[in-house]
């Protein structure tokens, strides 16, 4: 390992208080014929009140990363190395009641498909009441108090006719309304962190706009942290403070949102940006050649090396770690190892 390749998960600018820290996390899945080595040393920090985006393409491990925070990885998953801290406590060493508290009061999650996230045979009222009473924030048996909270949550999620929503079944709502209902349920009781896994992927663009605005407003009002998983850089740009770019189980670049778009450095980030069709026209780039590596036999060095236009000999053998290339800006790429940028500290 090169001297510069010391993992620096803690970014100085994130502030002293972090809500989630993921340190060198390696997660694999046991399947036929061997082991899928998916997460390959993920480092990530989410500050209190910070809105983070994780952007990457299908199968890059975004969802696996956030599921590891709530300890809801599927049974075939194996954690080989690394740790996940939630409010400085290791999630994988928590007692059951601490874990219960993490899931009930610490963090909540909404998913890509609100239809699958809602139970079709119960009314929204029954489902949200269940969530509130299990959150541990309300004393048992206070039905009236729970109902008031539920209606308030629906109203805040801009669902029309909040009282009537209590008696509504999920199938009676449109996709956008269902996602609002999911947001209402996730935010009905106070939480420190909201995880949104592709919350608007199945929605139309005008509805996506409404749902993202709602999500952002509610998170801002409450001073919560947000982890937004998306494959769309545009969505991340409009919603988040800081963006992690993820590729094949690694965070390859992280920077403040504006910085990522103004000064993208990792070859994957630049490639991704050039592929996006723009309103200003000018055609789209040829795309990134090749496809995501086979997780059974991933490349030994940098996992982007086989597709990288700027790959060097070194990339085949060693895995690049994050290096600081600017304020809050880190890149995991050997191109930025030896040549220090102007006025930029080089760690190691």
């Amino acid at each position: 390992m090169a001297d510069a390749s010391v993992a620096k998960p803690m970014s100085s600018a994130v502030g002293a208080e972090s809500i989630v820290q993921i340190k060198d996390l390696h997660v694999g899945f046991k399947v036929f014929g061997g082991l899928l080595k998916v997460l390959n040393g993920v480092n990530m920090v989410v500050g209190r009140g910070e809105k983070i985006g994780i952007v990457g393409e299908t199968g890059c491990g975004k969802t696996t990363t956030v599921k590891s925070i709530l300890r809801i990885l599927p049974g075939e998953a194996r954690i080989f190395h690394g740790e996940v801290l939630f409010q400085d406590k290791n999630v994988y060493k928590m007692h059951p009641h601490e874990l219960q508290k993490l899931r009930g009061q610490g963090a909540s999650m909404i998913f890509q498909d609100p239809t699958a996230a809602l139970n079709p045979v119960f009314t929204l009222g029954e489902q949200i009441s269940e969530i509130i009473s299990h959150s541990g924030t309300q004393p048992e048996g206070k039905k009236e108090a729970i109902k008031i909270l539920a209606v308030k949550a629906f109203r805040e999620a801009t669902l029309p006719d909040a009282e009537r929503m209590m008696e509504t079944y999920p199938f009676q709502l449109s996709g956008g309304m269902r996602q609002r209902a999911c947001i209402a349920m996730a935010l009905a009781t106070p939480r420190d962190l909201m995880i949104a896994d592709e919350p608007t992927t199945n929605l139309d663009v005008t509805i996506q706009d409404q749902v993202l605005r709602l999500l952002k407003n509610l998170v801002d009002q409450r001073g919560m942290s947000l982890i937004l998983i998306t494959h769309s850089l545009g969505v991340a740009r409009e919603t988040t403070d800081r963006i992690y770019i993820m590729y094949a189980g690694n965070m390859v670049e992280v920077a403040r949102t504006a910085e990522i778009f103004e000064r993208p450095l990792h070859p994957y980030t630049t490639g991704l940006l050039s592929c996006i069709p723009k309103l200003t026209g000018g055609g789209v780039a040829e795309g990134i050649p090749g496809r995501i590596p086979d997780y059974m036999n991933p490349p030994a060095g940098c996992r982007f090396e086989p597709r990288c236009p700027k790959a060097m000999e070194r990339c085949k053998k060693e895995k690049p770690e994050f290096v600081e290339v600017g304020k809050d800006h880190q890149v995991a790429c050997f191109l930025y190892y030896q040549v220090p940028q102007n006025g930029v500290q080089h760690h190691g």
Partner: peptide, 14 residues
């Protein structure tokens, strides 16, 4: 499809 794949398909269609 993912955006990097979309780019390839679009260019191919053109």
């Amino acid at each position: 499809l993912d955006v990097s794949v979309q780019a390839k398909i679009i260019n191919m269609l053109i």
